[in-house]
């Protein structure tokens, strides 16, 4: 069961230094409203990808905009936790 989010921004399967600019543009365009970000597809992530998510969390907190994650993969959890970013990002529970 994969509920479809209202206005969710869906991030790509590979969120790395090659694709991060496009994701950054997509998020920046939407950063002034309440945001649902669908991480369900993200399987590969590198430091650039995680850093982008950190920036998003900080931006939402700064503007007091609600931000909700959707469907973080195990790979994303492992990467975030290993790098000590698990609590910064507050990802939903692993599938």
């Amino acid at each position: 069961m994969d509920p479809i989010e209202p206005d969710a921004v869906r991030l790509p399967a590979t969120l790395d230094v090659e694709t991060v600019a496009a994701a950054h543009a997509a998020l920046t365009a939407r950063a002034d409203a309440a945001l649902v970000v669908d991480l369900g597809a993200v399987e590969q992530v590198d430091l650039a990808g995680l850093q982008l998510l950190c920036a998003l969390v900080r931006t939402a907190a700064h503007h007091q905009r609600p931000l909700a994650w959707r469907g973080a993969s195990r790979a994303l959890h492992v990467a975030a936790n290993t790098l000590g970013l698990g609590h910064v990002l507050g990802l939903p529970e692993a599938p």
């Binding site: 950054h24 920046t28 430091l47 650039a48 850093q51 950190c54 900080r58 290993t82 000590g84």
Partner: peptide, 21 residues
């Protein structure tokens, strides 16, 4: 592991391929 994220700028000022962490 203690990650230092304070230097990561807001989205608008972020150069996504530059390292801040």
């Amino acid at each position: 592991v203690n990650a230092e994220v304070d230097a990561v700028p807001l989205l608008a000022d972020l150069d996504p391929t530059r390292s801040y962490l």
